[in-house]
Design a protein around this nucleic acid. Structure first.
Length: 483
DNA sequence: TGGGATT
């Protein structure tokens, strides 16, 4: 085993030694390390767990049994740390990997030692994992870095069993790799030293070195990707309860646009109206969670007054702005959903525009609190149930660039904001990987250019606090390159 | 004002 650099010894186990060894797993152990010359063990040696050993047998007694499969590097009976009592099991490492495999196949559950009712257990120790705890995922590699470059980077930390750079079908690197070490300790040493330690040429962030996904995690990831593949967002699966004040206010704003569209034939705004029906249907799903709609419209042409829509439940159904439906305040659930138990919106019945201002002012107000009182994540709750979506661009003319987003805006809020204008294929707020902070811009893709144009019409210049949203078509990929 | 990935 190669020593880890920087003087930090890998925790996988002691090197060759005689006599006593210190436990590496919190159990007191006495060691046996046979042979006058200190034996070397193979870099790929396997540490075996041996179970169902009679309490009366110590290392010297067990040695002959196991030596017939090869030279023993280390054999240690596990003893209780406090009482020193034999725990009925041991760790066994042969010098050669092959010896371990032979011993396992010859002994594991094949014979029962005297006095035991169950057959002996001989199998790789849990600390050996199944490769999972010594296989690393490496991200943020430069696209030109190949296997050899990656090996050079990792070889100081131990023996590399596998090294694979992930590539697209056309052969270009995906900027990430798998590196499998001979031991867990080597893998951990590499993580400690390399993760975040440098930024590779051509990478957008510092090197990522972490344990690779387990099979289970991988399966989960696959499922999520499948779900993401289903494509455009349909309103129904989105958890509405997590909808934040901003989003709600924006929806109110959209409702205001609708209200302004009372006459026929207003083009894009009429398209919004069509989409709002979509949203109204959507809100039915969440209705049990939400305050009942006001039976009468608020003054000033509020959403309840919208003409031509099936039922006014939709817009009110979204709203945390309880002043619009004051009779609902105090209903179970509404406080925790919408007020964070902190500062209810003032009990008045403003017009939609006012409600908008209130919502933004309120949210900014929260953000000014010490984080212990009003963490941003409370205003915009995490949505563990929201599946990570596949990033997909829509057709030409369907992709929007949105700038001056509120700092707290996440993907979910972006989706909510633009959903009323059409089927959202993807929505992404850009996040600084180092700080996890939003960069306050993002992209939204629709499945048709009309939706995109409608969204620009409705939302470009929309004021939030001191800023106005900038909503425009995304520049084509190479528009920046002058030549 | 651009896509951070898991054989």
């Amino acid at each position: 085993m190669a020593a880890a650099p920087g003087g930090s010894a890998p925790p996988a186990g002691p090197g060759p030694r005689l006599g006593f060894s210190t436990a590496d797993s919190g159990v007191g152990m006495s060691g046996l390390n046979p042979g006058p010359a200190v034996p070397m063990k193979d870099h790929d040696a396997i540490k075996l767990f041996v179970g169902q050993i009679p309490r009366g047998l110590d290392e010297q007694d067990l040695k002959p049994l196991f030596e017939e499969f090869g030279r023993i590097y280390e054999l240690t009976v596990l003893k209780d740390r406090l009482t020193g009592l034999h725990k009925g099991c041991a760790f066994l490492t042969y010098c050669a990997r092959d010896s371990a495999l032979k011993a396992q196949s010859a002994l594991h559950e094949q014979k029962t030692l005297p006095g035991m009712n169950r057959p002996i257990q001989v199998k790789p120790a849990a600390s050996e994992g199944r490769g999972e705890d010594r296989k690393l995922f490496v991200g943020m590699l430069g696209k030109q870095q190949g296997e050899e470059d990656v090996r050079r980077l990792f070889q100081p930390f131990g023996h590399i069993e596998e090294c694979t750079v992930l590539r697209s079908p056309d052969g270009t690197s995906k900027g990430c790799a798998f590196v499998k070490f001979g031991s867990q300790g080597e893998a951990q040493a590499a993580i400690q030293s390399l993760h975040g330690s440098r930024t590779m040429a051509g990478a957008s962030s510092s090197l990522v070195v972490k344990l690779a996904d387990t099979d289970r995690e991988r399966a989960l990831r696959r499922m999520q990707q499948m779900a993401g593949q289903l494509g455009a967002f349909h309103p129904a699966p989105l958890p509405l309860g997590a909808c934040g004040a901003y989003t709600t206010a924006i929806l109110q704003h959209q409702a205001a646009l609708l209200a302004a569209a009372q006459g026929p034939g207003l083009g894009p705004v009429a398209a919004v109206a069509a989409q709002m029906q979509h949203v109204a249907a959507f809100s039915l799903v969440a209705a049990p969670l939400l305050p009942a709609a006001a039976p009468s419209s608020p003054p000033g042409g509020g959403p309840g007054a919208l003409p031509g829509l099936p039922a006014p439940i939709g817009v009110n159904g979204f709203g945390p702005l309880t002043p619009l439906t004051p009779q609902t305040s105090g209903q179970p659930g509404s406080d925790s959903l919408y007020n964070n138990g902190l500062s209810p919106y003032p009990a008045q019945s403003p017009g939609v525009a006012d409600a908008l201002q209130q919502a933004y002012a309120g949210t900014h107000h929260y953000a000014a609190y010490p984080s212990a009182y009003a963490p941003v994540s409370t205003t915009f709750p995490q949505q563990p149930s929201a599946l990570p979506q596949q990033q997909r661009e829509g057709p030409e003319g369907c992709n929007l660039f949105i700038y001056h987003l509120p700092q707290e805006f996440g993907d979910a809020e972006l989706i909510q904001t633009f959903l009323p204008f059409g089927a959202v294929v993807s929505a992404k707020v850009f996040v600084d990987r180092a700080t996890n902070q939003s960069k306050c811009f993002g992209f939204v893709s629709f499945d048709n250019p009309t939706s995109a144009q409608t969204a620009i019409q409705a939302m470009n210049g929309f004021q939030i606090g001191m800023k106005r949203l900038k909503v425009q078509l995304k520049r084509p990929k190479d528009a920046n390159r002058p030549y």
